[in-house]
Amino acid sequence: MNNSVTEIRLAGFGGQGVVLAGVLLGRAALEDGMHAVQNQSYGAEARGGAARSEVIIATEPIIYPEVTAPHVMVALSQAALDRYVADLRPDGTLIVDDELVARLPADASHRILGCGFTRIATTELERGIVANMVMLGYLARATGVVSLEALHRAVPGGVPSGTEALNVRAIDRGAALVND
C-alpha cells in the first residue's frame, strides 16, 4: 500500500472565499492526477458566519470522505482558528492570515506560517476579494500539496469568467511570498 493522503482544512468567515479556495484545491489535485474530495460547512448567513471547507487529496480513490485529523490547516480569522485548530496533527502545518489572527495556539509543535494575505490582496492587487487566492498560492508553494501549474490550470472554469487573470496573479503573488 503506497497510498499518500493529505487532509486540508480551510476556515474563516463567510465571504472570505474559503469554499472557493477548497474547490480550486480539489480541481488542482485532479490536474495533478490525484483523487480529491472537497466538502464544506457553513451557517445560514451568506457573510460573516463561520465557514469551513475541507479537502482530501490522495493517490488512491478516497473511501472515508471526511477530514478527521488535518495535515494542513488555514485560518483566516481568529474565530476560525479557535474553533477548528484542535484536530490539527501535532506535526501539522498551520497557515494564518497573521494580521487577522493574533493569538496562536500554545502547542508549539505545529509548523506555523503566515502572511497578511488580505492586506496584500487589498493594497497590491487592489481587490481584497482575492485574498483567498493569495493564500492558495502560498499554501501550494509552502506545502506542495498541489503544484502551482495545476493550480493555474484549475482557474479557468473554476472562477467567474473574466476574473481568471486577476486570480492567477493573486495565486502567483501568494506563491512568491514563500520566498520573500
Partner: peptide, 9 residues
C-alpha cells in the same frame, strides 16, 4: 447535506 454539497470526480 454532505453528499449534496461534496465535490468529487
Amino acid at each position: 447535506a454532505a453528499v449534496g454539497h461534496m465535490r468529487e470526480i
